[in-house]
């Protein structure tokens, strides 16, 4: 009996090793490398975009935010600076948002509210905080450092005809888990361009929390192989609320002066 159990353990270990070897075979790169490529694939040198964000509640009632955004990759190739102006709805029209990202620290953020007539420095958001009332959190939009998570390649499978790596990402420590609000993420990453097509999020208690689908992938910087998903939909499975973010117009590689990313840019109504 004891011999049978030991044999079973050994067989089990061999099967697990085979599965791991299969995942790490030449055709299947390391999970961390895949997520690193995913992290960089949307880092466009400069971008001007008009976006529409639809907030749809569980009864189908829709609210709409239209914004225009200007962003530029900083010299370190990781952080971006961006200016966002809200065009609609009427009561927040003219609101401006400036963010200077710092991958190794808290981002610098300012908001300009036309009614206040002055810019106000904001406290850096927790990554789990909602982005302007939507179902996207700040951490969903500005991805955390790759090494803040442990990544495991689960399998490969096709989504909408595209071969994808399926990768599970678990926060490396409790702080990251608490800050992100996630105990686990499962991402479907396209094998050909490393852009995600689907991400499933689990809350800190391990329950299914949100699902994001990213579609209409567009190659925007051919020389650096940078891609953008022109449509992203995030569904909160616990509330039934969803947010659809669509790029209506994009311009890539435009010249942007560094002086653009100052509070005076957001103070122009």
């Amino acid at each position: 009996m004891k011999t049978k159990t030991s044999l079973g353990c050994v067989l089990g270990l061999m099967l697990a090793a085979l599965a791991a070897a299969s995942a790490a075979a030449p055709g299947n790169p390391d999970a961390r490398d895949i997520m690193e490529k995913n992290f960089y694939v949307t880092k466009v040198r400069s971008l001007r975009s008009d976006t529409t964000m639809l907030l749809i509640n569980d009864r189908g009632q829709t609210r709409e935010r239209k914004t225009t955004t200007l962003s530029k990759l900083q010299a370190n190739g990781v952080d971006s600076s961006l200016v966002v102006k809200f065009l609609t709805p009427a009561d927040i029209k003219g609101t401006g948002f400036l963010q200077i990202e710092h991958i190794d620290g808290d981002d610098d953020q300012w908001i300009y509210l036309p009614a206040l007539k002055k810019s106000r420095r904001l406290v850096a958001n927790n990554k789990k905080d909602s982005f302007v009332g939507s179902d996207f959190s700040y951490g969903d939009i500005l991805l955390p450092k790759v090494d803040a998570y442990r990544h495991t390649l689960l399998r490969s499978e096709a989504v909408d005809g595209q071969d994808c790596y399926v990768i599970e990402s678990v926060p490396k420590d409790e702080t990251e888990k608490r800050n992100s609000g996630y105990s686990k993420k499962v991402s479907w990453i396209r094998r050909d361009n490393f852009l995600e097509t689907r991400v499933e999020y689990y809350d800190v208690a391990g329950r299914p929390y949100k699902t994001q689908t990213a579609t209409a992938h567009k190659l925007v910087e051919p020389d650096t192989r940078r891609w953008i998903a022109l449509r992203r939909e995030m569904i909160n499975l616990q509330t039934g609320h969803k947010t659809v973010l669509t790029f209506d117009r994009i311009e890539v590689g435009i010249p942007v002066a560094d002086g653009t990313f100052t509070t005076r840019s957001i103070e122009r109504e």
Binding site: D106, R120, R121, L122, V123, A124, N126
Partner: peptide
């Protein structure tokens, strides 16, 4: 003046 200290403004 305005300055942030971590999560405190």
């Amino acid at each position: 003046l305005a300055r942030n200290f971590g999560r405190y403004g």
